[in-house]
Structures are given as structure tokens and as C-alpha cells.
Simulated assay, not measured.
Amino acid sequence: MVNTLKNISAYQSEPPTDLQPRIIASGPLYPREKVLAVLDCGKTPSPFTKKCVQDLERLSLDLEKDVPELIRTALISGTFLGSEWCQGKSPTLVVACDAYRLFRSEWVAHARKDMRFEYYVKFALKRPKEENSQPELILIVSCHLSEERR
């Protein structure tokens, strides 16, 4: 069977046919320092899936401010959950992702108090256009609260 999937992530491996198995045994795939350096460059992360776009809108998360902060918190104080292949908006594009769980305290106006929320964040570094360049962009694959985990 011919593999028609194209890996656009910085993880240098061919995706499995039909993304089976999805789980990537080694991980995390992206070193913390490298991801933090990409965040420090100030480029806005880009949603990679339709569901991620919907989740970010529903949670009113800003791509320029909130999402980089969530990723940074996940890397510094979150828990690495594993790595896996994920399909994007286009059915032929895939990325190898690292998934993290993090907790964050947020003000809830309706409750008039800070409340603790559990987030899941899954991301990949995009493969640079030039072969020896550093990744410049983070692709957000998933960003949602724990009770929305599927």
C-alpha cells in the first residue's frame, strides 16, 4: 500500500500508513528549549485541525497571547503525556505531536473567584522550508479542557 500522508512536522520520520499505529514510542519529540526558543521569537502559533480552531474560539483563547502562554506553562510545569501522529485540516497532511496536561488558575466572573482548570495541549513544530533552518512555527493540534478530552 502506498503511503499518501505527508509529514510537515520537524520530527524526521515517515508517518505510518493510515496513521496506524498513532502512538510514537519515543518522546517528547521536541526538546523544551527548542520549543521555548520558537515561542520567544514571537511568531503566532497556527491551529492545525478544525477542532482546534473550534476549541480555541469556544474557550475565547487568543492565538497571540493565551496559546503561547499555555504551551510555555505546559513545557515548564505541565506533565508530558505522550507523542502521536495527528491529521490536519487536509487529510493528507500529518504532524508528529507532543501532548501535555497542565493546570491553570483563572478568574471566573460568574463565580467571582479564581478556579483551577485542567488543560490538554497538543502541538508540533513545523518543518522549516530550508533544510538546515530552525523551526519557526508551532502548529497547535489540540487545546481544550480536561472534560472535553476525546
Rank of each mutant, 00 (worst) to 15 (best):
Pro45Gln: 09
Val121Glu: 10
Ala96Asp: 00
Pro135His: 06
Leu70Ala: 00
Lys43Glu: 07
Leu70Met: 02
Thr79Phe: 06
Gln12Leu: 10
Val95Lys: 06
Thr92Ala: 11
Val121Met: 11
Arg72Phe: 05
Val121Phe: 09
Leu63Gln: 10
Val94Cys: 04
Asp62Glu: 03
Phe103Thr: 03
Phe117Pro: 05
Leu59Phe: 02
Leu125Arg: 14
Gly42Glu: 07
Gly42Tyr: 06
His144Trp: 11
Arg104Gln: 02
Ala37Gln: 14
Lys50Ala: 15
Trp107Phe: 15
Asp98His: 01
Glu69Lys: 07
Lys65Tyr: 13
Leu93Tyr: 09
Val141Met: 00
Pro47Asn: 05
Gly42His: 03
Cys41Gly: 11
Lys113Ser: 12
Pro31Leu: 13
Ser90Ala: 11
Phe80Trp: 05
Leu145Gln: 08
Ala99Met: 14
Lys126Leu: 14
Val94Leu: 05
Tyr120Trp: 03
Leu102Asp: 13
Asp40Arg: 06
Ile138Cys: 00
Lys65Gln: 14
Arg58Glu: 15
Asp40His: 05
Pro15Gln: 09
Pro45His: 08
Leu36His: 04
Val108Asn: 13
Ser77Pro: 01
Arg22Gly: 11
Tyr120Cys: 00
Asp55Pro: 03
Ile140Arg: 06
Lys43Pro: 06
Lys51Met: 08
Leu39His: 12
Val35Phe: 13
Glu106Leu: 14
Lys50Glu: 15
Gln12His: 09
Val38Lys: 05
Ile23Val: 09
Val108Thr: 10
Val67Phe: 01
Val53Gln: 10
Leu36Ile: 11
Pro91Trp: 10
Asp114Cys: 10
Glu33Pro: 04
Val53Tyr: 06
Arg58Gln: 14
Glu84Ala: 15
Thr73Leu: 11
Leu102Phe: 14
Arg22Phe: 10
Glu130Gly: 08
Ile140His: 06
Lys122Ser: 02
Gln20Thr: 15
Leu19Ile: 04
Ala74Glu: 09
Val53Lys: 09
Pro68Val: 04
Val95Asp: 04
Ala109Glu: 10
Ser133Tyr: 02
Leu59Asn: 04
Leu75Ile: 07
Tyr100His: 02
Thr44Leu: 03
Ser105Lys: 02
Arg116Gln: 12
Val121Asp: 08
Ala25His: 15
Met115Gln: 15
Lys51Val: 09
Phe103Ser: 03
Thr17Trp: 12
Pro15Tyr: 10
Lys89His: 11
Lys51His: 10
Ala111Ile: 08
Leu137Ser: 08
Tyr120Thr: 03
Tyr119Asn: 11
Thr44Phe: 02
Val94Asp: 04
Cys143Leu: 01
Arg32Thr: 15
Asp98Ala: 06
Asp55Tyr: 04
Val35Tyr: 13
Glu57Cys: 13
Lys126Pro: 10
Leu61Trp: 07
Gly27Cys: 06
Arg112Phe: 13
Cys52Thr: 14
Gly82Thr: 00
Asn132Arg: 14
Ala96Glu: 02
Pro135Leu: 07
Gly27Ser: 08
Gln12Lys: 11
Arg104Ile: 00
Asp66His: 07
Glu106Arg: 15
Val53Met: 08
Lys113Ala: 13
Ser142Gln: 09
Phe103Arg: 01
Gly88Phe: 07
Leu56Trp: 09
Ile76Gly: 02
Tyr120Ala: 01
Tyr119Gln: 11
Pro28Ala: 02
